[in-house]
Design a protein around this nucleic acid. Structure first.
Lengths: 162, 162
DNA sequence: TGGCCGAGTGTTACAGTGTATCATCACCAA
DNA sequence: TTGGTGATGATACACTGTAACACTCGGCCA
């Protein structure tokens, strides 16, 4: 099914893969991949669009099991800390990391304002130039966010088709 | 100090300049630069550090004049829309634009996690590479945010001095 | 076996951020 | 004067995130 190679792979099929990667990573680092954390990751990984913490809480709640937002936040803290999930600052929402670059550096998020999906890519060239710019300004970076809003290729294709 | 040339100038002395630029811009575009909008801009421009909307509301309130947060938000909407103020997504806060590039494109925000000041710069090279990356991904951008967190030159200097 | 301890979770309450809605006011034009 | 438009005031509310405390569970050790 999902055999496309290089790029991200959130959405539906990507969920199991994300879980598998998370399990592996937690084994390696001796971390607890608990049910809640797995469920939260699964909820996010099953979407191409970002989910808010409260959306996740609602999605995981069912008769007999109520998941409070605060629990979701804690799981999200854990997941983001280890690069399994990314926070989209401009949306106050979260997506699962599709890559395996678990360090979370150099990411660029492409947010489609039409369909709402978020692609993530990296660009060594941008990273390189940004590093130069920062060095010139005498600034020592520790983290950064780069989020671009616009129209994704799929939506562009659809709109020109007509 | 850091002698990069054409940069920002918020903070203290920059307030009157920011106001003057805003007045000019509003005259040009036939916009209303009302008291509230001026006060909000002045409050922000008097700081090197970003202010939250509620901070601004409090700063503008005095006995006999209570400024509600919602009013501040409306003024901020106006100011950001015309590039006089920038929103810092990672902080939920606002700073006055120090440049005159009122289109707001290509900005990079340098947020010092030590002293909290925010520098803003531009980098055509970064912009250029980012444009390439987006084109390659088939993504048509409409806006973007680029915020770097780290330690500013001034703080680095201070810490190595000791 | 029993007690301790730490990590994770449940629960409640609350703080911070942002928006919807409606009423009012000032100003300009017909 | 009347009516429309844009800005503001005011209240309420929705959404986002955190603090504090209690509880459980498992491992560890006396």
């Amino acid at each position: 099914m999902h055999d496309h190679a290089a790029t991200h792979d959130h959405g539906c099929g990507g969920a199991e893969e994300a879980i598998a990667r998370a399990e592996r990573l937690c084994r390696e680092r001796d971390l607890q991949f608990t049910r809640l954390r797995r469920d939260v990751l699964a909820a996010i990984a099953g979407q191409t669009r970002p989910m808010g913490a409260y959306d996740i809480a609602e999605a995981l709640s069912e008769p007999g099991r109520r998941v409070a937002a605060v629990s979701v936040y804690r799981a999200l803290d854990f997941l983001t800390e280890h690069g399994l999930v990314h926070r989209i600052a401009s949306r106050n929402a979260f997506i699962s990391c599709g890559h395996s670059h678990t360090d979370g550096a150099g990411l660029v998020f492409l947010i489609c304002r039409n369909c709402g999906t978020i692609d993530e890519t990296t660009s060594p060239e941008v990273e390189d130039q940004l590093g130069r710019t920062l060095a010139k300004a005498g600034f020592k970076p520790t983290s950064r966010i780069l989020e671009v809003e616009g129209e994704c290729g799929a939506c562009l294709g659809r709109s020109t088709e007509d």
